[in-house]
């Protein structure tokens, strides 16, 4: 079980590295897709089907958008400049982050053991024990998302709303010209 997980995460990291290093934009988009689908399989192995469904769905849609946006434009080959200063900065940055990461991982509880188990009346324990009785929803993930933590979901929905609003606001003038003016010209 843990070996399969390690293999999947290793493949994910390899795909991510290919994404950064490849010079072709289309190859980069495809490797981003590989990263997303491998992550979805990792979620399934960790028995989180809700997260896996959202991961696959968002991955497919965003990947299609990326490919569509990339293929429409002239695909330029990126020139990778291996400057000594830049590489050394990157290595130093990764080393510092890695050191902090190792410290943090040491403070974590063992893999697979709930973090909140150490506290007496932790929220996660309360959710698990009285979630069905209080909300009436058997799927506890949705019960937490839309009942116990509905404020967070509201924030998430607002973020998505703002993203759509920003996209429409930036590209709005084009759209109006496209639909209205061209109709007038053609008719």
């Amino acid at each position: 079980m843990i070996e399969v997980l390690a293999l999947l995460i290793l493949l994910t990291v390899i795909a991510a590295i290919i994404t950064v290093l490849t010079s072709n934009l289309l190859h980069a988009v495809i490797s981003v897709g590989a990263v997303g689908f491998l992550l979805a399989i990792v979620y399934l192995f960790l028995s989180a089907p809700d997260v896996a469904i959202v991961q696959i769905g968002v991955e497919v849609v965003s990947l299609v958008i990326l490919i569509r946006a990339t293929l429409g434009r002239e695909v330029q080959k990126l020139k990778t400049v291996h400057a000594v200063v830049g590489v050394s900065f990157a290595v130093a940055f990764v080393a510092v982050i890695g050191l902090f990461g190792i410290q943090v991982f040491n403070a974590f509880p063992q893999f697979g053991i709930p973090v909140m188990q150490r506290f007496a009346d932790a929220p996660s324990l309360v959710y698990l024990q009285s979630g069905l009785a209080e909300t009436g929803a058997p799927n506890l993930v949705t019960a937490v998302l839309l009942d116990f933590r509905a404020w967070d979901t509201l924030g998430e929905a607002t973020v998505l709303f703002c993203a759509a609003l920003g996209a429409v606001a930036i590209l709005r003038r084009n759209a109006r010209i496209n639909t209205d003016k061209n109709k007038e010209e053609s008719s």
Partner: peptide, 27 residues
């Protein structure tokens, strides 16, 4: 489940239209 299916319905509507909107406008 009380308000949970209602919230799901409304959020599904919102997410579907927002993602399609972003896709269309971007591409």
């Amino acid at each position: 489940g009380g308000i949970i299916p209602l919230g799901n319905l409304v959020l599904g509507l919102k997410v579907a239209s927002a993602l399609f909107l972003v896709f269309t406008v971007l591409t």
